[in-house]
Amino acid sequence: MTNTRFAFLLLMLTATLSGCATNPNVLQMHKVTAETLGLASTDELTMGPVTKGTPDFLGGTQLTFEATTAKGRKFNCSTYMTPGILLEPPKYSRLTCTK
């Protein structure tokens, strides 16, 4: 393999990995949390600050936050965020909310 090909492949790999979305999409989390708690609208929910854990070897991160409903019920919630590739948004799984 020539140096030019190696440099091109390295550049393509770097460009692909740099396009991964690793910032939480708080609006999407807000919507999914409201649905999980059985609320009719996201207007009935406020979320506290999102705390991001240490990323694993694939870039996935555990996120924790506090959710409060309009009636004053408080939940400690957590979800696992998998980064999106290139222009895809991050995906969320294993959302759990406990009182």
Rank of each mutant, 00 (worst) to 15 (best):
E88I: 07
A40R: 15
L63W: 03
E44V: 04
G53P: 08
A7P: 01
T61R: 12
P24N: 02
L86G: 06
L17P: 08
K71Y: 03
T68I: 02
Y80S: 10
Y92A: 02
S78I: 00
T82S: 10
A67R: 00
A21L: 01
G48W: 02
R73E: 11
C20P: 00
L86H: 12
T22V: 06
T64W: 02
K74G: 15
K31W: 14
L95R: 05
T2P: 15
G53W: 06
T64I: 03
N3L: 03
L39M: 07
N23S: 11
M12A: 15
N3K: 03
T68H: 00
V50L: 00
G84K: 03
P89F: 07
T61F: 05
L37H: 12
L63K: 04
L39K: 10
S18Q: 15
R73T: 09
T46W: 00
L86I: 15
L27E: 14
N76I: 03
T64Q: 13
S93Y: 13
T42I: 13
S18R: 14
S78N: 14
P55K: 12
T54N: 02
G84R: 05
F6P: 01
F65L: 01
K71V: 03
K71A: 13
G84D: 05
N25Q: 06
Q62S: 07
R73W: 05
R73Q: 12
G72H: 11
N3S: 04
T64A: 13
P83L: 07
D43N: 15
C97Q: 05
L17M: 10
P90S: 06
K31P: 08
D43Q: 15
T2V: 08
M1F: 10
L95T: 04
P24K: 00
L11T: 11
C97M: 04
G19T: 09
G59Q: 08
A67D: 00
P55Y: 11
R73S: 13
T51D: 04
V26N: 12
T61P: 11
S41T: 15
F65D: 03
S41W: 06
H30A: 10
G59R: 08
L95V: 04
L10G: 13
T61H: 10
A40S: 15
C97S: 09
R5I: 08
T64C: 07
Q28L: 10
L58R: 13
T16M: 15
N23E: 11
T64M: 05
T68A: 01
C20T: 06
P90I: 02
P90A: 04
M81Q: 08
G19R: 07
